[in-house]
């Protein structure tokens, strides 16, 4: 056992020295750059968020929600709390709505489902997570 340790010691020193040399070789603080992907991703989430808000702010949608006894402000709060990924999925649902069909009805359905499943804690999409939480 002892001989083994004596034999491996130089190896571990070499590895440690190698790693140190590698880290010294990196530019001063390369890790500090924010990549383009993060920027584009955020812009996309932002765009989808405003699309969802637009849909929610349509008078017909608000009226129909109210007629179902749902407070649009409640839905609004829920939408605000969506993470970027959840926003993306919700916007995708909106994209896949039947064109030319009952758009208002479909939108209302999406928002109502958002609230109901949320109350029941059913799905991951609708879990209570604050915007920009550490889930990513």
């Amino acid at each position: 056992m002892d001989t083994f340790r004596r034999m491996t010691k130089p190896v571990s020193y070499a590895v440690a020295a190698g790693m140190l040399a590698l880290s010294l070789h990196l530019p001063v603080a390369n890790a500090a750059m924010v990549g383009t992907e993060a920027v584009v991703h955020a812009a996309q989430a932002q765009q989808q968020r405003s699309r969802i808000h637009e849909a929610l702010n349509r008078e017909e949608v608000k009226a129909k929600l109210a007629s179902l006894g749902v407070d649009p402000a409640q839905v609004q709060a829920r939408v605000d709390a969506l993470t970027d990924d959840e926003t993306q999925r919700l916007a995708k649902q909106m994209d896949e709505m039947p064109a030319g069909g009952d758009i208002v009805g479909a939108l209302v359905l999406i928002f109502v489902i958002l609230l109901i499943t949320d109350l029941m804690g059913l799905t991951e999409v609708f879990s209570f997570t604050k915007k920009g939480s550490a889930r990513r």
Binding site: V28, A29, A31, A32, V34, A38, A42, G132
Partner: peptide
């Protein structure tokens, strides 16, 4: 905002 930890890191190193 997003990436705030990266910003603090940049500042700290500088």
């Amino acid at each position: 905002g997003d990436n705030a930890d990266v910003f603090r890191q940049t500042l700290a190193r500088i």
